[in-house]
Simulated assay, not measured.
Amino acid sequence: MKLNIAFFGSSLVSSYWNGAATYYRGIIRALAERGHTVTFYEPDAFDRQKHRDMEDPSWARVRVYQPTEEAALAQLKEAAKADIVVKASGVGVLDEWLEQAVLEYCGDSTTIFWDVDAPATLARVKENANDPFRELIPEYDMVLTYGGGNPVIDEYTKLGAQYCQPIYNALDPSTHHPVEPDSRFSSALLGFLGNRLPDREARVKEFFFKPAQQLHDKQFLLGGSGWEDVAQTIPNLDYAGHIYTRDHNAFNCSPLAVLNINRDSMAATGFSPPTRVFEAAGAAACLIMDYWQGVEQFLEPDTEVLVARNGDEVTAHLQNLSVERAKSIGQAARARVLAEHTYSHRAEQFEQIMKAERTSRAYV
């Protein structure tokens, strides 16, 4: 079963203000390696094309269109020839229009709404009974998400989804792997990489800035866009700004440990490991993670990851962390994700889902 897949998302070629880039790249590359054809449609928006961190890949066709309904419609008419048409959440331009238009123009294809921020999407729909997406959910052949577990499946089912299943973030070993420490980042005790977002900021203050202030004689490293004003207020904080994907391995491998902090909605829902978790584990970094339900499904606390419920626990982990233990945790995490959580595993899961869907169609 070789599939022709059309995928409307934020961007495949730029990670600039686009946290889903690694996820898209991992899934799509793994699907291509298994013989499927993917065309990725992305709008020319938010200066992402000016901040590309990769050329058009050999394993996917990329169609960049102007952020207008007319230009998007031309892409939809081409996409309608595909076996599967995916509309991802958070394209960033014409999202509501695309959600309706995919169903209208691509009805002969299998239509998938692929939610890369399910907790936020569900919260929005629940809070607004008139949200136009609410009525469209049952019209899609299936909803896939990149996290959320049974809580997300149950919520989408209540809203009428025909089928809902998470396909979790994972590791692409060809892009995220151990490298030598980089002098730009190696002086830090703890590094954190994440753009400044409203529903993340309070948790960053608690889990990252608070330990930095408590351990004022140690260096901390911050990467990501939007933190300029805050970074200036903490003397022992090095601010690296936007970190391109090509430098993620160096960022993860250089400090003694790296920190992942979920956004509010992800932490509350649980079962939503961010891309950064697998990037860090793939690089054999010692990862400290804020607690969320289901973490042990992906990494075992205390042996493959250090888990903290607040900033004080992050500080305690750092005070008790030796170079030897950090190395042991990082190596154990890498072994776990290589065995169970690569994008090859996720692509195989996608194939199984599509095989079942096509079988059920044959009996209708």
Rank of each mutant, 00 (worst) to 15 (best):
F298W: 13
E99H: 12
V62F: 00
Y23H: 10
H248P: 00
I288R: 05
L98R: 02
G35S: 05
R63W: 12
Q352F: 03
E155S: 15
L221C: 08
L215W: 08
A6R: 06
C286I: 08
A316E: 02
A45R: 10
I84W: 00
A316M: 04
Y65L: 13
D182I: 04
R309D: 15
G270W: 11
A362Y: 03
A332W: 02
E33Y: 09
G90I: 00
A21R: 14
F8Y: 06
A123T: 14
V364W: 11
F46E: 12
A212N: 01
R25M: 11
A316Y: 04
D264I: 13
A326C: 09
S14C: 04
N150P: 09
G92Q: 02
G19P: 10
F113M: 06
R124W: 00
G241T: 05
A80S: 13
R325M: 04
N236Q: 07
D238W: 09
L237K: 00
V337G: 13
L98C: 08
G26H: 07
P43E: 07
A356M: 08
E78M: 05
V143Y: 03
V102T: 04
L259D: 05
V13W: 00
V179T: 05
A202S: 15
R263W: 13
V258G: 10
V64W: 08
R25E: 08
V38N: 01
V314K: 10
P43A: 08
T145S: 06
A30C: 00
Y65S: 12
P181C: 09
A161K: 03
F8W: 02
P181H: 06
E300R: 15
G107L: 06
E279Y: 05
Y65T: 11
R48K: 15
G224N: 01
A240H: 06
R336M: 14
N169R: 02
P181Q: 07
S183W: 02
T157S: 15
V204I: 09
A283E: 11
G223T: 02
K158L: 14
G107P: 01
S11V: 01
V230A: 14
L76V: 03
T342A: 10
V64M: 13
L221N: 10
L215C: 06
P255I: 04
V314A: 09
D83G: 03
I153D: 04
E300F: 11
S187M: 05
L3D: 01
Y156E: 03
V62W: 01
D83A: 10
R309Q: 15
Y105A: 07
